[in-house]
Write a protein that binds this DNA or RNA. Structure first.
Length: 671
DNA sequence: AATGAGGTAAACACAT
DNA sequence: TATGTGTTTACCTCAT
């Protein structure tokens, strides 16, 4: 016990909330503080947990692997986007085309999580956010890598030139037809490098000695960074000197390493939100230094996919151009429609194809890995839950889980539904606010089921809402404490650790909230949910909400969310799957965008009293609940002392289904 | 600044 | 006695 609690303490520290405050950086500037604060207070013997408080997020090897896989995939995707967009643009030089392109949702930057510890980030960010963040980070990384590659290319170029034309070598401009061949080779080389990079990243474990390289790939060691090396990239250069050490150190994939990794993502260059990402029309995020930022901003309107950072982005060309006009000129002269350009274009095409193939493979691999690594938790336990084990996959609510895993290999990375809540709240996702605003827990869960199941991310729901969800998912609406625990661990990777902490929290919540009713059962005590009480506890304020929703969304959009992204957010945010009949998350979300909130809003709000029962909910059910609670005296009794109610409870016997529906709608929605 | 909600830690009682 | 379960209290953070 002692041990456990001790470790718990350590772990819990990070979760503590010094959310935004801790600027000191991951490891823990905050940790100590938080710990101290937390422990310090109480008069009673709180032994200071402060001592060991170390916020290092811990990742098991499996988790780390998963994480790295995700990164690799993201990188690949990014590459594809970039390559693809780069490919498409060459033809026309007019800036309008820039509009095309895929957007990389990166706006989350504003959250400037840079200084947060991994754990904190997880708490603060929702899966979608994390994902966006990851993308952002990877975009940055890519940028770095690309620049690196370019430099390497240039070097190679020069080498070749010097070798073959011993004499005056004019930079790239002077490239003649002869150089064409070289250039193509270079491009292919680049392609190889990229692929290699991907695979290396995938493996994560690979570390290369800077010196061992030979030939054109010489650069790989530095370029081929495993996630843990990223910080170096961000810092500037591949620091040829360190790689050996770092790689060795990180090869171990120990916890600290993983923590570092996570952190590294969180602590990218300190780019101000506005600067941090610029998503070029071609979907290529550009990392802008403050200095350039301004200029790029100006350019943005008339930017060109092949133009960024004041230089030509044409493969192998880094010609500096003062402005877009000059660039256009350059483009027309240097990269006009000729053999060379078409050849390069062809190469680029191949690169894209290769990457696509690579991506597919990687995706497949990831899927397999995840299936292997995370299956365990979801596997039926000997435990035998009174309820359908299937619960994990089919929510009673009638929610249908998106065929995520099967269809989208990357699912874990991109939870289908972007929960707006977290974005909105900006603070710890679990905060009450999030609880209220976020999409219905059931739908959120349904949509991100796989994600939460596999990613060690703290779900943006309150314990109360989670407990409720767990209970409601069962056919008979009741669970023993242990079953609740199991549900938590089964559904959320996050709760597979820190057990003492969250279990305590669960118990605490069960006892604390009136909405949870303990019922004596034959086998022992089971917990049920008093929906009415649950509804009650929601503050009235949220009621109106259209405004809130809007503000929320606008808040979300804050940065530079493009319309589509916002729309997506809006959609996913309020997928009220309400209509009892059709609870198809997918369809629901797609069908009801913003309007939902309105629908949902009214429902939720009704905190005041029974009246609350959301219009369309099945009143009967509520009445049920009401009855239980109706009698203050009895209710009370019911509750705590838990006078053995014969049949666990009304809800059970009767109309589970109805309840489901209704609950889903009103309750969670709002919450 | 006050208040409420939620999270965490811990003490304590009770049952197995 | 060791554990698990429940309850309660205290303190903290955050949002309103």
């Amino acid at each position: 016990m002692m041990v456990e609690s001790a470790s718990e303490t350590i772990r819990s520290a990070p979760s503590g909330q010094n959310g935004v405050g801790s600027i000191s950086g991951q490891a823990d500037g905050g940790g100590g503080g938080a710990g101290a604060a937390g422990a310090g207070g109480g008069g009673a013997g709180r032994d200071s947990a402060a001592a060991g408080a170390d916020s290092n997020g811990e990742m098991s090897p499996a988790e780390l692997l998963h994480f790295q896989q995700q990164q690799a995939l993201q990188v690949a995707r990014q590459f594809l986007l970039q390559q693809a967009s780069g490919l498409s643009s060459p033809g026309n030089s007019d800036s309008k085309q820039s509009a095309s392109a895929v957007q990389v949702p990166v706006s989350v930057a504003m959250m400037s999580p840079q200084m947060l510890a991994p754990q904190q980030m997880q708490q603060i960010l929702s899966p979608p956010q994390l994902q966006a963040l990851l993308q952002q980070q990877q975009a940055l990384m890519l940028q770095q890598l690309q620049e690196y590659y370019k430099k390497q290319q240039e070097q190679l170029h020069l080498q070749l030139l010097t070798q073959q034309q011993a004499g005056k070598q004019q930079p790239k401009e002077a490239l003649g037809n002869k150089q064409l061949a070289f250039q193509q080779q270079l491009l292919q080389m680049q392609q190889l490098q990229q692929q290699h990079l991907l695979s290396l990243q995938r493996q994560g474990l690979v570390s290369l000695q800077p010196s061992q390289a030979s030939g054109p790939l010489q650069t790989l060691p530095q370029a081929a960074v495993c996630p843990t090396d990223l910080p170096q990239l961000w810092k500037g250069e591949g620091a040829p000197g360190q790689p050996a050490e770092d790689s060795v150190k990180q090869e171990g994939l120990d916890l600290s390493g993983s923590a570092t990794t996570a952190t590294s993502f969180a602590a990218p260059p300190k780019v101000s939100p506005s600067l941090s990402h610029h998503t070029l029309p071609n979907g290529q995020p550009t990392v802008l230094t403050p200095r350039r930022d301004s200029s790029s901003h100006e350019e943005t309107p008339g930017s060109h996919p092949l133009y960024g950072h004041g230089e030509c982005k044409w493969p192998g060309c880094e010609t500096l151009c003062e402005d877009l006009g000059q660039f256009i000129k350059h483009l027309n002269t240097e990269h006009a429609l000729d053999d060379r350009s078409t050849a390069q274009c062809r190469v680029q095409m191949q690169v894209v194809q290769q990457l696509e193939i690579q991506l597919a493979k990687e995706s497949e691999r990831l899927q397999a890995m995840m299936a292997h690594l995370h299956m365990r938790p979801s596997e039926p336990k000997p435990f035998s839950q009174p309820v359908p084990v299937s619960a994990a996959d089919s929510f009673p609510d009638g929610l249908v889980h998106p065929p995520t895993s099967a269809a989208a290999p990357v699912t874990p990375l991109r939870p289908p539904g972007l929960s707006s809540a977290p974005l909105h709240s900006g603070g710890p996702a679990r905060r009450r606010s999030s609880d209220k605003f976020c999409s219905p827990i059931s739908s959120e869960l349904a949509q991100n089921h796989e994600f939460y199941k596999n990613a060690d991310v703290r779900p943006p729901f309150t314990y109360a809402s989670l407990i409720r969800q767990a209970i409601l998912e069962t056919p008979d609406r009741q669970l023993t404490l242990n079953e609740i625990y199991n549900w938590f661990t089964r559904m959320f990777a996050y709760f597979r650790r820190n057990t003492a902490t969250w279990k305590n929290a669960v118990r605490h919540n069960l006892s604390l909230h009136k909405c949870f009713v303990r019922v004596e059962n034959v086998k022992g005590a089971v917990w049920t949910v008093d929906e009415r009480e649950y509804q009650k506890r929601r503050p009235p304020k949220m009621t109106g909400s259209p405004t809130l929703v809007k503000s929320m969304i606008s808040g979300l959009s804050y940065g530079a969310l493009n319309a589509s992204y916002q729309a997506a957010l809006a959609e996913s945010s309020f997928p009220l799957l309400n209509s009892p009949g059709m609870l198809n998350p997918g369809s629901a979300s797609s069908l009801l965008p913003l309007s939902h909130d309105e629908v949902g809003a009214p429902v939720e709000p009704l905190p005041s009293n029974g009246s609350s029962s959301p219009p369309r909910l099945s009143p009967p059910q509520y009445s049920h609940q009401v009855q239980v609670k109706e009698e203050p005296a009895e209710a009370e009794e019911d509750r705590r002392p838990g006078p053995p109610l014969g049949p666990p409870n009304p809800s059970t016997a009767g109309p589970p289904e109805d309840r489901d529906l209704e609950e889903e709608l009103p309750g969670e929605e709002l919450s």
